[in-house]
Amino acid sequence: MPDLIFRTEGVTKVYDTGEVKIYALAGVDLKLFAGEFTVLLGASGSGKSTLLNILGGLDHVTEGRVWFKELDLTQLNDRGLTWFRRDHVGFVFQFYNLVPSLTARENVQLVTDVSPDPMAPEEALELVGLGHRMDHFPAEMSGGEQQRVAIARAIAKRPEVLLCDEPTGALDSKTGIQVLEALKNINDRFGTTTVVITHNAAIQKMAHRVIHFQDGRISNVYTNDQRLPPSEIVW
């Protein structure tokens, strides 16, 4: 049995707008294991992004508890969560969120400068196939390239988990597949626990495990017996 990375117990997240209470998460119990590639699927508002943010230490639970290995994230204050993100988590977002004033290499360096055991920025960029574009600014790159820089930035600190929120959402299928290749490559080589949120059902074919969300709850979980490589995924 692989090591347990994340464990949640009855996680509830309520947004109180004053007039109505919106249950973004209504009691989620989940375990994620080391080296696992998990895809979270569900309609908008089903709670998958909220869960990802809570796992990544960007948001707090209303009720319930979340453990990263032995660390109880629900007990950490803002500073503790900052250090948790800094040391253990890599994020990839739909809108790449690169710093426009830094080149690809420097964007990656942002992370490697503050990490205890990073890989060289150049190595991270090679891993996502951008060894030849290192000194370009974001404005000089395509969307797919920018997203791959974001992935390089996320993995350069050798995180134990990689959390991706719609990483291909803003890309066409060709560049989207390049991005998925990069994610799979990282997962295979380093055994990084990877969680990918997507609307795109086709992507589930490359996951170890697929978790469906509906109305703030997990509605269905299944394991892929046969994973497809990204190159064979079509949408």
Partner: peptide, 16 residues
């Protein structure tokens, strides 16, 4: 704001 928020998510402290 986005840039600075990105950095916070990457693990930069408020001070940094």
């Amino acid at each position: 704001a986005r840039e600075l928020a990105s950095l916070r998510i990457l693990g930069f402290t408020r001070g940094e």
